[in-house]
């Protein structure tokens, strides 16, 4: 059951991502991506990571993608994307390159790991919390500082300069 579900969800994630990267309209792309992320979240759950699955939905699909949508709409990129979508000439070499890379890495993995399967595993939120705040307490602090700096940086970059520069471009 879980195995079948895994392959179905993998296919969904790959197809959704494929649509995402080929859409001309960025809003459509983001929506497809959100769909892919949902599939990915359930994959996480299947692999024994319920907390990560929840965060995938909450943080990625819920927060980050909404941020993207917000910026796209604020910059009014959605209705008339000024770009002509990338044509064959641009996609063909990129796709070839990506395919070559994929073949390389899959071959590499096949040579290395063989056929061993993943045993069933379940990480409870309690285990997760212990490990997070005991072993990786310092890393948590570092990451939280990074988030703080990112917030300050984002504010600084995106601040409204109109106060200093009247008549500046909106």
């Amino acid at each position: 059951m879980a195995t079948i579900l895994f392959y179905i969800l993998s296919a969904v994630a790959i197809v959704a991502t494929g649509f995402c990267i080929t859409r001309r309209n960025p809003v459509h792309a983001v929506i497809y991506l959100v769909q892919g992320f949902f599939a990915l979240a359930i994959l996480f759950y299947l692999l024994g990571a319920p907390l990560v699955a929840a965060w995938e939905v909450i943080i990625y699909a819920g927060a980050i993608m909404v941020l993207f949508l917000f910026v796209i709409m604020m910059l009014e990129l959605a209705p008339d994307d000024p770009l002509p979508g990338p044509g064959w000439q641009r996609w063909a070499p990129v796709a070839l390159l990506a395919l070559a890379l994929l073949v390389c890495s899959v071959l590499l993995l096949a040579v290395e790991s063989g056929k061993s399967g993943i045993p069933p595993y379940y990480a409870s939120p309690r285990t997760f919390g212990y490990a997070l705040f005991k072993e990786y307490a310092l890393a948590v602090e570092v990451v939280s500082f990074q988030l703080l700096f990112a917030a300050v940086g984002a504010y600084y970059v995106g601040r409204n300069e109109r106060g200093r520069d009247p008549g500046g471009t909106p």
Binding site: L97, A100, L101, C104, S105, L107, L108, V111
Partner: peptide, 10 residues
């Protein structure tokens, strides 16, 4: 560059 590295590894 990534392709180069991967190919060489392979």
């Amino acid at each position: 560059g990534l392709l180069l590295v991967l190919g060489w590894l392979l």
